[in-house]
């Protein structure tokens, strides 16, 4: 799947990164808790979130994420988008809720980032 495929599946607007739509994506994560994203995400992946504050973009920069998807029709402020553009992120916005967006992407083959859990039994989520 590419970022363009994700945008099509989610009927999403491409807010930033129209030149990055061909980048392939294999995994994603969904969280409003940047602490968890910082602690558990080890891949250059996609973050689906309902948070639109500057820390979403800063967290993405620290982790070299490829793409941000804002759910439930939320559009971040202009300065946040400018910051995303500066760091070369693709940013999508969909009217779907985070739950539905994740479900649709999963249905089309996207899987969760492997994440260790406190009660790790060797089985991966996703």
């Amino acid at each position: 799947m590419t970022i363009k495929d994700m945008a099509d599946i989610l009927s999403a607007k491409v807010l930033i990164g129209a030149d990055k739509l061909d980048i392939p994506v294999h995994t994603a994560c969904c969280s409003d808790l940047m602490s968890d994203v910082l602690a558990f995400v080890d891949e250059k992946t996609v973050l689906i979130t309902g948070l639109t504050n500057p820390h979403v973009v800063r967290t993405s920069e620290m982790l070299d994420l490829k793409c941000l998807v804002f759910a439930r029709g939320k559009i971040p402020a202009e300065d946040i988008l400018e910051s995303a553009e500066e760091q070369g992120l693709a940013v999508l916005a969909t009217k779907l809720t985070a739950f539905t967006a994740c479900g649709m992407l999963y249905e089309h083959g996207l899987r969760g980032v492997p994440v260790p859990t406190a009660w790790d039994d060797g089985e991966e989520d996703g």
Partner: peptide
């Protein structure tokens, strides 16, 4: 509210 304070820092 900003997405921090999960005790992971």
């Amino acid at each position: 509210a900003l997405g921090f304070g999960a005790g992971m820092g």
